[in-house]
């Protein structure tokens, strides 16, 4: 298995993914068309496609067009997410460097850390109702955990030699924190952003499935209530697509920022 033999994959290996994906949709369509799988249990790809086009303009039967559902979900998720970032990252950074911050913040943090995000849902609904406030609270509660952990770990992993050197040059604690700890924690922090976003999106969908009056999760639930499998599948696809899309955007942003960071780091 040396380098040369690996260079060229056989043609069959290149077309296999296409065969498999196309085959998947064809089999799916056939299963429905031949009624092997009854229509009340699953919709065919063509039906889902039709509904997708219809739902672009038609708010019936669930009360809103597809874009509205998507945007509502996105706004809820992003609001909670951004709140989590602006509270969680500074907290994690401070906890990583200042003993007092860690000592005071750690116990409450360790208490909420093991709570699975979805377990916040009943409390949030009870406190804030099924509207946007409750959702934002849930997302904040779940996304703040990876933000804190990663910022904290990032600072903890800052190069001790560098810190020691700064000390011998007489840098203050605060200077070391801002000039050394925060920059070296950034890669870890970005890792946390990714995790937090994935978590936020999943949890939001769960929250909307349980109690909502709009959003993609609500679309899925309405699909079940109205016995419309095409609506369920459309909702699922939109959830997957949107999640994949915002994941990619964050990935892009991260790459741009860390590339800038490395360049900046090399220059100094």
């Amino acid at each position: 298995m040396n380098s040369e033999t690996k260079l060229k994959d056989p043609l069959s290996l290149k077309i296999a993914p296409w065969v498999s994906v196309i085959g998947f949709f064809v089999v799916w369509q056939l299963l429905i068309d031949t009624e092997i799988v009854p229509r009340i249990l699953l919709a065919s790809p063509v039906e889902v496609g039709k509904l997708l086009i219809d739902k672009l303009t038609n708010p019936d039967p669930d009360g809103a067009v597809l874009m509205t559902h998507t945007i509502i979900s996105l706004i809820e998720a992003l609001l909670g997410y951004i709140l989590a970032l602006i509270t969680g990252i500074p907290l994690g950074l401070l906890m990583g460097w200042f003993v007092v911050a860690e000592g005071l913040a750690r116990p409450p943090f360790e208490m909420i850390r093991p709570i699975p995000p979805v377990a916040w849902i009943p409390l949030a609904i009870f406190w804030f109702g099924i509207g946007i406030t409750g959702k934002v609270f849930i997302i904040w509660a779940c996304a703040v955990v990876p933000c804190v952990i990663n910022a904290y770990t990032g600072v903890r992993m800052a190069n001790p030699t560098l810190i020691q050197m700064a000390r011998t040059y007489g840098a203050s604690d605060w200077q070391i924190f801002t000039k050394i700890c925060i920059p070296s924690a950034l890669p870890m922090v970005f890792g946390g952003l990714q995790i937090a976003l994935a978590l936020a999106w999943t949890t939001l969908v769960a929250a909307e499935l349980i109690a909502a009056d709009a959003g993609l999760g609500y679309l899925i639930t309405m699909g079940r209530r109205l016995l419309r499998p095409d609506m369920i599948v459309l909702g699922m696809i939109m959830v997957g697509l949107t999640g994949w899309f915002i994941g990619n955007i964050i990935d892009r942003i991260e790459r741009r920022l860390t590339a800038g960071l490395e360049r900046g780091g090399a220059a100094t």
């Binding site: 993914p17 065969v19 498999s20 998947f24 979805v118 499935l209 997957g240």
Partner: peptide
């Protein structure tokens, strides 16, 4: 080459989003 593409199609869907289909 056969399974990965299909798995990647399903991967971004949160497991809980299957709940309505599962109940059906």
């Amino acid at each position: 080459a056969l399974v990965k593409p299909i798995f990647d199609l399903f991967k971004p869907m949160p497991p809980i989003s299957w709940i309505s289909l599962a109940i059906l």
